[in-house]
C-alpha cells in the first residue's frame, strides 16, 4: 500500500517536469493563436467586445485593440517561461473574465460569437450560439493556468535559467 503510493509519487516526480512544459507550451499556444487571429483587424476585435454590450462603444474599441497584443505578450512570456507564475495568474484572471462575459451574454439571451479566436460579433439569423462549448473550452484553459500557478517551474524556462538551478526544484516561486 505505502510502497505503491511511494512508487506512484516517484513516478509523478519524474513525469512532472515534462507534463509542466507541455502545459506551459499549450497555454502559450492558446494565447498566441487567439491574439494572432485578432491582431490583423483591431476594429473588428473592438466590435466583438462591443457585441457583449457590457461597456460603452468607445471603451470596447480600446479594449478590443489592446487585448490581442496582451494575449500575444502572455503567449510569449509563457513560451519563454519568464515570470511563469505571474503569466499564469493573469491568464487565469483573463479566462475568468471571458467565461463571465460569455455566461452573461448567454443569460441575457444575446446571439453572439464569443470572438475568442477572431471573428466574433452578432450571429446571422438562424445561427445558434455555442456558449456551452465555448465556456467548457475556456474552463479547460483555466485548468492549464491553474496548474502553472501551482507548479510554475518547468524545464527549458527563463525562470529556471535565471535561478541557475536544475529544472526539477521545489515550488517556492
Amino acid at each position: 500500500m505505502t510502497v505503491t503510493t511511494e512508487r506512484r509519487r516517484a513516478r509523478w516526480a519524474a513525469a512532472r517536469p515534462w507534463f509542466g512544459i507541455a502545459v506551459r507550451l499549450g497555454l502559450a499556444a492558446v494565447w498566441l493563436i487567439a491574439g494572432g487571429a485578432k491582431v490583423d483587424d483591431l476594429a473588428a476585435s473592438g466590435r466583438a467586445v462591443n457585441a457583449y454590450q457590457v461597456m460603452p462603444y468607445d471603451l470596447a474599441m480600446v479594449i478590443g485593440a489592446a487585448l490581442p497584443f496582451v494575449e500575444l505578450a502572455l503567449g510569449l512570456l509563457l513560451l519563454l517561461g519568464l515570470a511563469t507564475r505571474l503569466a499564469a495568474a493573469v491568464s487565469a484572471a483573463l479566462l475568468v473574465v471571458f467565461v463571465a462575459g460569455i455566461a452573461s451574454a448567454w443569460a441575457r439571451g444575446l446571439a453572439i460569437d464569443c470572438g475568442c479566436f477572431g471573428s466574433g460579433g452578432q450571429l446571422a439569423a438562424g445561427q445558434a450560439p455555442s456558449y456551452l462549448p465555448e465556456i467548457l473550452r475556456d474552463l479547460g484553459f483555466l485548468v492549464l493556468a491553474g496548474y502553472l500557478l501551482r507548479w510554475p517551474r518547468t524545464p527549458f524556462s527563463v525562470d529556471g535559467w535565471l535561478a541557475g538551478e536544475p529544472a526539477v526544484e521545489d515550488d517556492d516561486e
Partner: peptide, 26 residues
C-alpha cells in the same frame, strides 16, 4: 527579490503590449 523583479518586468511587458495595441489602433 529575483521573483519580484521578473514579475514587475512581466507586468510592464503586458501593460506596454496593451498600449501598443491601443496606439496601433489609433
Amino acid at each position: 527579490k529575483r521573483a519580484l523583479w521578473t514579475s514587475v518586468a512581466a507586468v510592464v511587458v503586458l501593460v506596454i503590449a496593451g498600449l501598443i495595441g491601443w496606439s496601433v489602433f489609433r
